[in-house]
């Protein structure tokens, strides 16, 4: 239903909000996975970047569920806040990723387009999540916890190998975190909308 001026009587249902959020999170993760794979194939083969990428995501300071049991035991409000925190942690790096990707030698347009599209959709997903949180527990837009990112200098290093590793690591972490967000939202949707019976 079209909400002419967002009048209360014509609100989007929580189920629809979750449907949109899950579509977006699925889309963002697909793009992130494609972008990572494309970069990995083109710039990272044989450089052993994965060994250095261990434990180096700026969001690793956030406590997030890492298996099914943890994800199912966490209260839904806390899981919503985890999603918000991870999303917020990516606003800044995604902004810079778009500008810095353009400086990579022969960076294919497909990587640049994906970086721009992800940055745009991440903002939309964050807006959607804030609506969902507002709906699930009114009056609370979720804690403002997020992880700061200080990786811009490494994306601008003169040494190409170091600079490429910095991009690899950022895209590796983006793929991972977008997958977490997608997975958590699908769990939340099943729990809150379908009574854990998807």
């Amino acid at each position: 239903p079209i909400c002419p001026n967002g009048s209360d009587s014509c609100q989007v249902s929580l189920g629809d909000l979750f449907d949109r959020a899950v579509k977006l999170s699925h889309y963002i993760h697909s793009l992130s996975a494609e972008m990572f794979n494309e970069f990995d194939e083109r710039y990272a083969q044989g450089r052993g970047f994965i060994a250095k990428a261990i434990n180096s995501c700026h969001t690793s300071t956030l406590t997030t569920p890492e298996d099914k049991e943890q994800a199912q035991q966490i209260h839904h409000e806390d899981l919503l806040n985890v999603v918000l925190s991870v999303l917020r942690s990516w606003n800044d790096p995604l902004l810079h990723l778009v500008s810095e990707v353009q400086r990579i030698k022969e960076a294919p347009d497909t990587i640049l387009w994906k970086a721009m599209e992800i940055e745009e959709q991440n903002k939309r997903l964050l807006e959607g999540m804030e609506k969902i949180v507002g709906r699930v527990h009114p009056g609370d837009i979720g804690n403002e916890v997020y992880s700061t990112w200080s990786g811009l200098p490494s994306l601008q290093l003169a040494d190409e190998d170091s600079r490429l590793f910095a991009f690899y690591n950022l895209l590796h972490c983006l793929r991972r975190d977008s997958h977490k967000i997608d997975n958590y939202l699908k769990l939340l949707k099943c729990r809150l909308i379908h009574d854990s019976n998807c």
């Binding site: 099914k68 994800a71 199912q72 997975n183 699908k186 769990l187 939340l188 949707k189 099943c190 729990r191 854990s196 019976n197 998807c198």
Partner: peptide, 9 residues
């Protein structure tokens, strides 16, 4: 595969 809880899609 646990699709019911949403863990796996």
């Amino acid at each position: 595969a646990d699709v019911r809880s949403g863990w796996l899609t």
